[in-house]
């Protein structure tokens, strides 16, 4: 059974890039969301195993969304994919419950490596 993935990013081209790359990597994209609110509403109906999460988004940002997803499910694995390159943001995301942090711009290899690391736990 393939791993179920939800992609959360306000950029269509980033959602598309992540989907293209990870679909080839035996992950099934079960949901895509362009902000945190949409992600929370899709989460319970699609029950993803892994979430890639942008941070700077309208409506509900990534950190708030991570907190909300953690309240719904403490087992989901979350990889933050963000342009915010300062250490304090990465630390804050990890403290909120993300397990990994990938800085934009990223290559396909960096994305698959980060997902592999996330799944290895």
């Amino acid at each position: 059974m393939s791993t179920k993935l939800m992609i959360v990013d306000d950029s269509n081209i980033i959602r598309s890039k992540i989907s293209r790359t990870l679909s080839r990597h035996d992950l099934e994209v079960v949901a895509t969301a362009c902000n945190g609110e949409e992600a929370v509403s899709l989460f319970m109906s699609t029950r993803p195993d892994v979430v890639t999460m942008d941070l700077t988004m309208p409506m509900m940002d990534g950190l708030e969304c991570i907190r909300a997803l953690r309240r719904l499910n403490d087992k989901v694995r979350i990889l933050v994919v963000s342009a915010l390159a300062d250490k304090s943001t990465a630390i804050q995301a990890l403290m909120e419950g993300a397990q990994g942090f990938l800085c934009k711009p990223f290559t396909e290899d960096e994305l698959t490596d980060s997902i592999d690391e996330l799944l290895r736990g």
């Binding site: 700077t56 963000s82 342009a83 915010l84 390159a85 300062d86 304090s88 943001t89 804050q92 800085c103 934009k104 711009p105």
Partner: peptide, 12 residues
Amino acid sequence: TISGNARKHFGG
């Protein structure tokens, strides 16, 4: 991406 990456220099 350019603005977000600048936080590495300017801070959080």
